[in-house]
Each structure stands twice: as C-alpha cells, then as structure tokens.
Amino acid sequence: MFVQQDPNLIQLNSAGQLKHFLTTEGLSREMLTEILDTADSFVDMNAQQVKKVPLLRGKTVVNLFFEASTRTASTFELAAKRLSADVLNLNIKTSSTSKGETLKDTLMTMEAMHSDMFVVRHSDSGAAHYIARDVTPHVAVINAGDGRHAHPTQAMLDMLTIRQHKGAFEPLTVAIVGDILHSRVARSQIHALRTLGATEIRVIAPTTLLPRHIEALGVTVFTDMQQGLKDVDVVMMLRLQKERMQSALLPSESEFYSRYGLTEEKLKLTHPDSIVMHPGPINRGVEIETSVADGPKSMILKQVTNGIAVRMAVMSMAMGGQITEQQAARESE
C-alpha cells in the first residue's frame, strides 16, 4: 500500500556518496570497499610520527553519547582530532529522553551552534535514523551504536581487520558467537559480511539469545558451538552483558562459558589459520578464555587500532558527501 523507499538510502547524497553513516545495511559493496580502502590509508598515516591531516579543519564534530562508552567515544574523539576537527564531547547519560530535554531539543541546540557532524550513541534502535531523517538532515550523522540495531563503525573496523589478515572475503566462513539478540554489532557485521561476499556466516548462541528468524538475514544458526566452529576462518565473539543472567535468559556465567565460551580446546575445531575477534570490553572467563584473548590468533588490540582509521574514513567521507550535497543545493537555488 505504501511505496517504501529503502530507508537506508538517506545515508547517500544525490551523487551516491556517503553523507551520513547509519548502518552497513543497504550500502553497496563498492561503498563498503571504499570505506575500507580509505581506512587503510589512514592506518599507514596513524603509524607515522605526525598523525594529523587537515581534512576536517575548521569543522566542528560533536560526540553525543547518550549511553556510556569508553573505547568507541575515545576512538571517535581521536579520529576527529587526527582529521583536525574541533571536537566537543557530551556524555548525556540518561536512560530515556523523557527525563528533561528531549533528544530532538538537544540535537537542535547543537545544530544551532553550527556543528558540522554528530557522532551519536543512543539506547534506542533507530535513533540515528531519526536524527538524520527528521531532526538535523544537514548535519552529517555518524551512528556510534543505536539500541540493538546497528553499530556500523564497529562492523567496518572488523571488516578491515579481516581483510588485512585474510585478503578476500569470498572464501571465508565466519562465526559470530554469543548474545546475538541484544547485539547491534552482530547485525551490522552480518550485513557487511554478506555484502562483501563471505561464503558462510554462522551465528552461534542458545535460543534465548537469538532474535526471531535471524536466518532471514542470511546466516546459518548453530546452537552447538562445537559444530558451529568447525573449520571457520574467523571467530567473532560478542560481549555478554552481566545483567542477562538476571533476566532468565541464561542460568549462570559458568554454564554459558562451558557451552559458548571460546576456549583453547574449542578453538582447535576452527581452521588452523583462523583469527579471533572481540569488540570489547571482554569478560575473561565468561566469553573467552584468557589465553585465547591474549593468544596469537587474537586480533582484539588490532581491532582497536583499526577503529581509529575506520572512523577517520567514514567521518571524512560523510563530511565530503554533506558538503557536496549542500553545494549542489545552493547552486540549484
């Protein structure tokens, strides 16, 4: 009845360039590859003595974290600073917008200060879409995590890490393990891996931590970790929030660890050249054995390093796309 445009198209300007970065879903393989290529160039630069480029000089980036974060917030801040932007960090730790000022008012206030980019983390799924579509469409919006929906920069830094170690995505079998139900990271990883052409994407979790019909996203579901890990090239672990134990989703941490924790023993089932990833912060002895987290297959710190490069890439690309769009709009007036 309603002719619906792909809602993820609002990420692109009329020339097809990125102007917001809200989700990995609906972006083309070329676009994801461009993000990875751009990030690669920043990886090299970040290893230099002078770690700064003037791409965002004179631009104001506001980090709006409505939900607590350490590594995502700090890597976004570093990324913006290495692009020479002026950065304002706001930690607005309210559980809901009903307390005091609404999300809309906060954003419009920031827009009135002539901000050029918002990096937003919010506990509500769809918050970044809402801001980009309804509140401040002319400010580039970067989604730093919205509810259970998407965490696209995390997914892209994971893709970058995989590409650095595996080269191509096509031959890969990737397993995502743990709390899929509550995970925005898993959803963004799944969309990115599919678009980039991974052979098989597996999710491994007990049924209580699997969203309904997750297979419709193009994944194979395993509830048995031993079967699920067989011959995989990449193991992507997810963080398990402690409060899940209280909500009758799981009996105990120790039982979860015995069934779904990544141990040296289980890791032997994977491909000999497999790598292990985790978005952090890790719960040692709950999701992952310490020796695995610190072992040779672990990419956990590499992921953090890549996080800065990927965030620099999407920030510079989205700012470019916004500027192009606004110039085009001015010229047509």
Partner: peptide, 15 residues
C-alpha cells in the same frame, strides 16, 4: 510484531 522486520531493526518484539 516479533518477526523478521523486528529482528532487522533491532527492536523489542511483541510475540
């Protein structure tokens, strides 16, 4: 409604 769209959007479902 707790189904595919709900899973994709990461919203909480009503079964």
């Amino acid at each position: 409604h707790d189904d595919i769209t709900c899973t994709r959007l990461g919203l909480s479902g009503i079964p």
